[in-house]
Design a binder for these strands. Structure first.
Length: 297
DNA sequence: ATGCTAACCTGCGCGC
DNA sequence: TGCGCGCAGGTTAGCA
């Protein structure tokens, strides 16, 4: 479930509960996620300097003392969520991992701090550890593409990286080695808003179309973050509340329904083993774009 | 290098 | 009501 907006929503919710706090202990209930959970005993007592995000990865920056540092790397996979809970909260099904942090209690909690608890029904997420000051040397992070909301991302960047590429433009923008954080929902939405058909080869999309697409990717992600992300089934923020961006979706999950702009019946196709929905009328071009309604920015 | 497929795992909705 | 099937927000490994 979680794409960039959901991970960022989680990060923002968690940040005040972890920054500057002591990691008193970790607890692993179900070790076998995508990879076995890595949380060495030596992390107990570390100071959490900050909580960062790289793509869909959450990075707990740890100070282990005597000049040692490290990073706990958490990915939420398809169905994961991290919540802040009172220390003595009973464990529910699919609760796999806890961070026990000190600090002022939350409502109903004890004085001993709080719990950051990972729940992940499908167990596609992960909890990994990278020692040292630079988490980006970790193999999972080392080759990631640019941040879509960062300065290196632009239409020109997409245009240059896509030359001679034959895969569908939808798969291209979902490729984490190109740009991180854009998953199946936001890829579909961005392409709709840019008027680009998802199946066209990435290498045939024009410079102008990529300029438009990069703007749409940024606005869709920003708007979704503002709405607390998209909740289809599992996702809840760190406060346990769902996101609301699903109300703003134009095409994702709307196959067969009328386009919200032109009322044309939305079409569903499979691209790269992922379901895709688009409007055959609004999404025509691989190059020049005819006049289009100014839908949601 | 590029692009496609299978694989990981659980739950849910649908048709019969 | 129950059962089997297909599908679901991600990403990597492996193969052509």
């Amino acid at each position: 479930m979680p794409e960039l907006p959901e991970v960022e929503t989680t990060r923002r919710g968690l940040e005040p509960w972890v920054t500057g706090r002591t990691l008193k202990a970790t607890r692993t209930y179900q070790r076998s996620l995508r990879w076995p959970i890595q949380a060495p005993e030596s992390l107990n007592g570390a100071t959490i300097n900050g909580l960062y995000r790289r793509g869909k990865y959450l990075l707990f920056d740890l100070d282990l003392g005597i000049g040692n540092s490290g990073t706990l790397i958490v990915h939420l996979g398809m169905s994961g969520s991290l919540r802040v809970l009172p220390l003595d909260t009973p464990r529910l099904k699919h609760d796999h991992f806890d961070l026990h942090v000190d600090g002022p209690r939350i409502a109903g909690g004890s004085d001993q701090g709080s719990l950051i608890r990972l729940n992940d029904p499908r167990r596609f997420g992960c909890v990994l550890y990278q020692s040292g000051a630079d988490a980006e040397v970790h193999p999972l992070l080392a080759h990631l593409g640019v941040e879509p909301l960062g300065n290196e991302f632009s239409g020109e960047y997409l245009f240059q990286r896509s030359r001679h590429r034959k895969l569908a433009v939808k798969n291209f923008i979902m490729d984490g080695k190109i740009v991180v954080g854009v998953g199946n929902i936001y890829a579909a939405e961005s392409l709709f808003l840019a008027g680009i058909r998802p199946i066209v080869p990435a290498g045939k999309v024009s410079r102008q179309a990529y300029a438009d697409l990069s703007d749409r990717i940024q606005s869709v992600l920003s708007n979704a973050i503002r709405q607390g992300g998209t909740t289809l089934r599992d996702f809840v923020g760190s406060d346990g509340k769902p996101g609301y961006f699903q109300q703003s979706l134009y095409v994702y999950g709307r196959e067969g329904q009328p386009c919200r702009v032109c009322m044309t019946r939305l079409k569903g196709i499979t691209i790269g083993a992922r379901s895709s929905v688009y409007c055959p009328n609004c999404q025509r071009r691989s190059g020049f774009q005819p006049p289009k309604l100014d839908v949601a920015g």
